[in-house]
Amino acid sequence: MAKREYSYYPGCSSQKKASADNFMRSANAMCDALDITLKEIDDWNCCGASIGYAGGGEIPRLSLSARNIALSKQQHGDADIIAPCAACWIATKEAEERVEHNPRVREGINAALAEIGLKVEPAQMPKTRHMVEMLVEDIGLDTIANGKKKGLEGLTIAGYVGCQTNRPFGIAGESFENPKYLDNMVEAVGAKAVDRYAKKVACCSGALMFSEPEKGQALVRDIIEAAYDGGADMIVTPCQLCQMNVESYQTDINKRFGTKFNIPVVYYTQLIAVAYGKSAEEAGLDGQIIKATKLEALAGK
């Protein structure tokens, strides 16, 4: 497989011992298997995420992502910036869009960046892409399917795409209402994708899970119920916040709604890592609160 290099930053949740620690371990294992080198942006900062607007207005919030873009350009030239996190991806792309199209915002951002000797210019920023785009567009799901060491046979998986990997930008060629790439990825590694998963692109409540837990848990209840309805053994997601919200509140949801949920929620990177022969630990499966027993068993084979 051709060797590829990208610029990237993990984002706050995928740092060591942060809430998506196991995501980054599995992403590293996957990249190792696919001969991909990710070069970290030195001293990257938080993108502001979806809730940063409460404290930071437009210019302060977008300056954060502009700093990452400028640092990437300085350190890694025109290499694409790979965002493994949906919030990072959206925030960075939004900053790029406003810099390109809104002169007032661009001037404001550059006045702020001048304080630290940085600058962003239209048409000269590296492109920011989601890790899923890297897999689908650069590597190709056929290549992933052909190169796998083992098929994840016997697993039925609900592909939960969620919101921000899907909207407002989404993956090229996919629809907002029924994107197929995650199901295709599940099939590429030899598992069975739940057909017509009703809550595929429903919202997990995002950051409001923390501030409005009752309302957030009601949304997640429906997401999990639909996965069971589709006969799923587990749920797979591309998003760190979706993973956290759908996996880790199942005990609370059971208490609140009288359900008996106990379904593992994994990342696509973990499926690919296992299919490429990585161990359960390399694939970050020791990071599951609800153990993905069937996937672990396949990893051990």
Binding site: S63, R67, G108, A111, A112, E115
Partner: peptide
């Protein structure tokens, strides 16, 4: 540096 950047951004806004 980030603090200086954010302070300036706030002023502009």
């Amino acid at each position: 540096g980030i603090a200086r950047m954010l302070k300036k951004a706030q002023e502009v806004e």
